[in-house]
């Protein structure tokens, strides 16, 4: 992770997303109109969030396997960065919903899934905050992270499919995916997912290195 090329790639891809996201051609769909461009930001940020949360899960499993302090820190920082992307995705989605559905928040399975995801990870941070002993904190947090992640996947993956959603592509609403995520949009959508993920990993990496410097300084003092 010392190399610089992937950071540059992340910046280029996000710039590409912003420029082509606002200027590129998009299909004209009823109700959605120009707001379809939110897809490049809202949906892709949540893709990046799921990738980071999955990384956090794998670090937690790794922690239980070998009890390394670094694994625990990585699990925490990926969850923090994922939460940051989730907040951005929530804000962009909420503004979009205001102009498409007429309200900032509606009772929709996907929105409930988002709420439960964010509440679970906030609880994860509170759990970390309320245990003093670092070993015990890391172990309890790892166990909760694994348990909660599975429940989250059940909620956002399975339950919305059992009921109808207001989201585009569900219940007869015009959607982005499948038949009408056309090739123009694909050209921006997939690079955007990679771009946001790389930027997320970069943020996480900076926080990781910062904490490691503090550790080294403290060891020096001892």
């Amino acid at each position: 992770m010392k190399a610089h090329w992937w950071k540059a790639l992340g910046v280029v891809l996000v710039l590409y997303t912003i420029i082509l996201g606002f200027l590129g051609p998009v299909p004209r769909l009823p109700i959605l109109n120009e707001t379809i461009r939110v897809l490049y930001f809202h949906v892709t940020m949540w893709f990046a969030m799921i990738i980071l949360m999955t990384a956090s899960l794998s670090y937690s499993i790794g922690y239980l396997a070998n009890n390394s302090r670094l694994r625990d820190l990585k699990a925490k920082e990926s969850a923090v960065t994922g939460m940051f992307l989730a907040t951005l995705g929530l804000v962009t989605g909420s503004i979009w919903a205001r102009f498409t559905w007429g309200a900032f928040w509606v009772n929709d399975p996907k929105l409930n899934g988002t709420a439960v995801t964010m509440l679970i990870y906030l609880a994860y941070f509170v759990l970390r905050g309320s245990v003093e002993d670092p070993q015990k904190k890391a172990r309890l947090a790892a166990v909760y992270n694994i348990f909660a992640f599975v429940m989250m996947i059940v909620f956002i993956g399975i339950l919305p499919r059992m009921t109808d959603s207001l989201h585009p592509g569900n219940g007869g609403n015009p959607g982005f995916s499948g038949y009408d995520l056309n090739s123009d949009m694909r050209l921006v959508f997939y690079p955007a997912v990679i771009g946001w993920t790389l930027i997320g990993i970069w943020i996480m990496n900076l926080k990781l290195r910062y904490t490691q410097l503090i550790w080294r300084k403290n060891e020096h003092l001892d």
């Binding site: 906030l122 609880a123 509170v126 759990l127 309320s130 166990v143 909660a148 429940m151 909620f155 339950l159």
Partner: peptide, 28 residues
Amino acid sequence: VSGLAAKAGDNPALPAILSIPLLYPQVL
């Protein structure tokens, strides 16, 4: 979750905030 919360010390809000989001799918 209550086994976990009991291990995490005596923060009285902890059991509720740890477990209620996990119960959402079932309660729904």
